[in-house]
Simulated assay, not measured.
Amino acid sequence: MSTFPTNILILGKTGAGKSTLVNYLYGQEIAVARAGRPVTAKGLHRHEPFPYRNMSIVVWDSWGLEADKAREWWDSLQEELVRQSGRPDVRDWIHTVIYCFDAKKSRLEEYEQEHILKPLIAMGYRLIFALTKWGLCSSQEKNAALEVLGSAYPGFSCIPVESVSQKLRSGRATEQLGRNDIFREICLNLRSNLMYHLRIRTRTEMKEAIARAETNTIRVFDRETGFFTIFGDELRTKLEDTARQNYLREIRSVYADLRDSLTLIDRMCVEVIRGYTGIDVSEKLQGLHRLMDDIGDTRIQAWSSGFEEYAATIITTVISLGLFAFIRNDTYRDGFVKRLREVSVRLTEDLESFAASLDQAESGVEEEIAKKLNALR
């Protein structure tokens, strides 16, 4: 079995068909929305992992969404999602969100849009809309359901689903529908959701790392200086070395975490897609690693293994003030802090350039994977 679980969050209004959808997709009698171990005080639940093909599937569900509890419902869900995405291991994050939409009713309530769907999208989750009870719908109802979702959420996947094969009173029989299409979208969404949240986390952590390096360097300045300090070349050299070491240590740590997380996401992506579809996409994932390896040849080399030379150039250039002996401590400190802020700004600008390059490369990777998966249709 794969060492990587696929964490699936199933949402929807009461009676939208969450339980039957899971049973149809995985052939498992998971009592969605009625059992499971509660993770928050309110009703977000994690069910025990179960094997499917060569994977481990973890289904999360919530108490049924209803109008009079929509705000309470969202507060509970949001708290858990924030907690999940803050975990250091991407295997613990929510990988895919499936929203069950009753196609026969063909309407979106204002409360489910304002309190659930729009906030989820704002958090970076690319939803899969499962149009449940499709086999029970008339042609008019089907068209209306597609129009409602297509108008409100263009660009999001809307998958017609019939989870149960049954004979109706009219004599017509419904046929199960949508499993392979849902699986294909899970494969695409897993990578898209993980990469989005990884980029957000990396930006935040890198900015925090730069701020820590600046603060720690100033702290050393305050500890090493006093009324009788001689502000000359010896002190300047010591401060340059301190700044270089602080910035280098902090940024390297975040950069190493990024590489490790990216490698893990790539492995998850390959194994999950192989598990659901049998397709091998490993050759499609080389571009990002080449970008990471070759980044020392660009303006954003601050985040490469050649950071020492880069940092030395920036810090020496910016911090060196043409200092003289016996300058007042407060004057020197103000100038030193100003120069450190300039270093932080320069590094933050390069971080954004680096992130933009990764975003562009990732778009190409996801496009190539989508082409390969769409060929299955």
Rank of each mutant, 00 (worst) to 15 (best):
G27E: 11
M55S: 10
G27S: 11
E66M: 13
E66P: 00
Q28V: 10
N23L: 01
M55V: 04
Y24Q: 08
I30Q: 12
S56R: 15
D61C: 09
R46K: 15
P38F: 01
N54W: 06
W63M: 04
L25R: 07
V32S: 07
F50D: 09
A33C: 15
P51Q: 12
Q28R: 15
A31W: 06
S62I: 00
E48A: 15
E29R: 14
R37G: 02
D61R: 11
H45I: 09
K42F: 06
H45M: 09
A35P: 02
G43M: 05
I57S: 04
G43I: 02
R53P: 00
Y26R: 12
N23W: 03
L44Y: 12
T40Q: 10
P51S: 08
I30F: 08
S56G: 08
V39A: 06
Y26W: 10
S56W: 08
L44C: 14
R46I: 07
A33P: 00
R37I: 13
D61F: 07
V32G: 01
V58H: 07
R34L: 04
V58C: 02
I30Y: 05
V59G: 00
N23A: 14
H45W: 10
L65I: 11
A41W: 07
Y24F: 15
S62N: 13
P38I: 06
A31D: 13
R53E: 07
P38H: 07
L25W: 01
V58E: 08
Q28E: 15
Q28K: 15
D61A: 09
V59M: 01
K42M: 10
A31R: 14
P51I: 02
P49Y: 11
P38R: 14
Q28S: 13
Q28T: 08
W63L: 12
V59I: 15
R37W: 05
E66C: 05
F50I: 06
S62W: 00
P51D: 14
G64T: 04
Y52S: 07
T40N: 04
